[in-house]
Nucleic acid binder design. Structure first.
Lengths: 225, 225
DNA sequence: CCGTTCTGCGACACGGTTGCGACACGGCGA
DNA sequence: TCGCCGTGTCGCAACCGTGTCGCAGAACGG
């Protein structure tokens, strides 16, 4: 069901839990130390981490914090029986749930499913990608080749408007109305200027634009070539 | 990282994208037709579906609708270049995101991660952790670097509201409605002020905030850029 | 090939938006 | 009743965004 990283130093527990979770349909990678676990996680992040607190070397809290710092992967902790100090500290370190030892694979599996279920839904916003240009309408961010592009409000509105009708020519008047909310009828260099500023940010070579094409006499058209 | 179902009839694209996504750490199941994809999805639901629009037999729209009807799995669509009809219809059929062909594996991977990241948190789980900031929704407590942060009711509501939609921009109006339960339409500095007070408590350096970003002209955004 | 029109682009100053400190009001507890 | 804490409001200052202007160069038509 899910790719799980298990970090547990006790050999018997590690092997037993790993095989059991495997039988429950999970894809388990098991490591014996925090260092090894962090390394594995860094190169191929799991969807959920099952983490023992008592570890040689880097202890569970530290591992937890580091994984938390790196992303939002859910973490299920394994703690010694009834040790509520562990529990509190664990939750503070960013664990999502904990299971008290001795572990019952069935219980761990139930917790894992519960945590994953909790983490599952929520409505994602809508983003779009054009070539290496990514527009995230929910976060109001634009990235090019993986790098974030700082956008001003007007530039962003203009880009959103253009990209909402890809391949279609939008006249200056249309853009003026929708982006600037002006109802000018006379000519204005506003749109030209806006497009120029936008190009300067998203085009590799503004003199031969890839994303925003000039259609002489009519307006502008968005669309990767 | 995640179990992904890829539905794409073009052999070259399918194989290329599948192997590339595999290298990026995803667990890819690839099918050539909508029927096959739906069958696979029914017997073992993926965490995310990458779906081509142009398919023989059942087309992408229909597949999209059926997957949507069956659950809340995020869907990333692959559409022909600049075909805005595709894009609009795709979003209407329930796609969360779309990428314009020709596809760049890196871009598709980025989109997948973005969609999953957005889909992941926000659930009303007990605690959520962002860097060294831990928000416990059950206990209504906030700790930073292990130390409890004293919060006033309004500040806490604001923080909960913002952190409930991480990575998403929330407008002042939205926040005014949800946090203050006002239905102002005129402008008000209430939200600005609330954010400022909140930042003073949770940000190390309020002048360069880490958790709550100002998105000029749009509102505020919680979480990673 | 030349002239006209349209567009790209840099410069600059104005205005809006935001951050931030200060203050006043009101509710709750002592 | 008094005092404190939380919160709404106001005003100021700074910064950033943006509208405007002018010129040069490209594109297009004759």
């Amino acid at each position: 069901m899910s790719r799980i990283l298990l970090i547990e130093d006790d050999h018997a527990v590690r092997v037993g839990l790993a095989t059991a979770l495997g039988r429950y349909g999970h894809d388990v990678v098991a490591t014996a130390t925090g260092e090894e676990g962090l390394r594995r996680h860094a190169q191929d992040a799991a969807e959920l981490v099952v983490l023992d607190l008592m570890l040689p070397g880097i202890d569970g809290f530290e591992v937890c914090r580091r994984i938390r710092a790196a992303g939002t992967v859910p973490i299920v902790m394994l703690t010694a029986r009834g040790d509520d100090i562990d529990v509190v500290s664990g939750l503070e370190a960013g664990a999502d749930d904990y299971v008290v030892k001795p572990v019952e694979p069935r219980v761990v599996d139930a917790r894992i499913r519960a945590v994953l279920r909790r983490a599952a839904p929520a409505a994602p916003g809508r983003t779009s990608a054009w070539g290496d240009l990514v527009i995230d309408r929910a976060a109001m961010t634009v990235t090019r080749a993986g790098r974030p592009v700082a956008m001003t409000p007007t530039e962003l509105r203009l880009l959103l408007e253009l990209s909402a009708s890809p391949g279609q020519v939008l006249s200056r008047q249309q853009l003026l109305r929708t982006v600037w909310e002006h109802s000018y009828l006379g000519d204005s260099r506003l749109v030209d200027n806006g497009v120029q500023r936008l190009r300067a940010k998203i085009e590799t070579d503004p003199s031969s634009p890839v994303y925003i094409q000039t259609v002489r006499g009519f307006g502008y058209r968005f669309g990767p070539v």
